[in-house]
Simulated assay, not measured.
Amino acid sequence: MPPKGQEGDSSASTDSNSNSFFTVPAPIKRLFDKFPLTTYPANELPQRFQPNTANQLFVFTDARGARHGRPSFNPQCLKWQAYLKFVGIDFDITASNNHASPTGALPFLLPALPADTLNPIPSHKLQKWAIEQVHCEEEQQLNLRFEVYASLLDHRIRHAWLYMLYLDSENFDAVARRLYVEPATTNTVVRAALSHQLQQAARDELLKNSRYIDAADLEGDAGGAFEALSTLLGEDEHFFSRPNPGLFDASVFAYTHLILDDTLGWKKNRLAQLLREHPNLVQHRDRLLKFF
């Protein structure tokens, strides 16, 4: 790339049976008395994360990409990186990973000074924070079709992306391994384990929606999504006829840019072929790339 509550109480008639059934055996109780279960708080920020005079956005990128503010190679990170640029919020990029995030996921943002404490803003709160800073519009309330078309990105296009990046062996070795695995560790055993974890996570995600994984079906669904997005955009420069790009433009750009980015080193890229069948989506990507 880019997530349970307890069941309700039993009725009063079953309370006595439930209490006896769930009694902890004495040996187990003595063990937990010595080593009680602890709920740990969110990860603390590493000490190198110090207050800054600029907003800091922590994303998946490399050192060179961070220095030059280049697009992240992770769609979720790139979505918010682009959105903040589109609404006119200045920030610096910091290369990071999920383990360094207080929430366990990227991106997150540390607001600029003045601030009494370090209060990182996770991705699901970034739009609200941005609206408070620059008083921009909230697209979801402006167009009822927003959520419908967003589901095309979150499901059809994302699923095809997961397959192309993680489950196509040639692309995994050429792209995902280089971007996500090799920077994380030099230990070959750990690299092998991390590679397996990444691929298994992608496989598990895809199997939530199907009994088996079919690359042709995933590509076909993505092609249909591109066609629908192309129709939605039409001859406009931005989605939903906005005068300036917004969150939906950023969400689309996060995938179209990375799919069309030959510098990533794709070995197989059927998604790029499907995307190029819609020149207005390609032109949309090229226009937004000028923000970087």
Rank of each mutant, 00 (worst) to 15 (best):
W266N: 02
G220Y: 04
K208E: 05
E227S: 14
D261C: 11
A272R: 07
E237I: 03
D236F: 08
K268S: 14
R203A: 04
D217R: 15
D249L: 04
L275R: 09
K267W: 08
L275T: 01
H257V: 00
Q273E: 15
H238E: 10
A201R: 11
L258I: 01
F253Q: 04
D236H: 15
A254W: 11
N209I: 14
L218S: 08
A201W: 05
R242E: 12
K267Y: 13
T263N: 08
A222C: 00
F240H: 06
D214S: 13
Y212A: 13
E227N: 15
S230I: 12
I213D: 01
S210H: 09
R211V: 09
T231N: 09
L232Q: 09
D262M: 12
N244C: 07
P245Y: 10
N209P: 11
Q200L: 12
W266K: 08
R203Q: 07
L264H: 05
E205L: 06
E219Y: 15
Q273I: 12
A202E: 04
S241F: 07
A254P: 00
G224H: 14
L233V: 03
L206S: 07
G246L: 04
A202S: 12
P243D: 07
S210F: 11
K208V: 09
T263V: 12
N269I: 05
L275P: 01
N209G: 15
A254C: 12
W266H: 07
D204H: 07
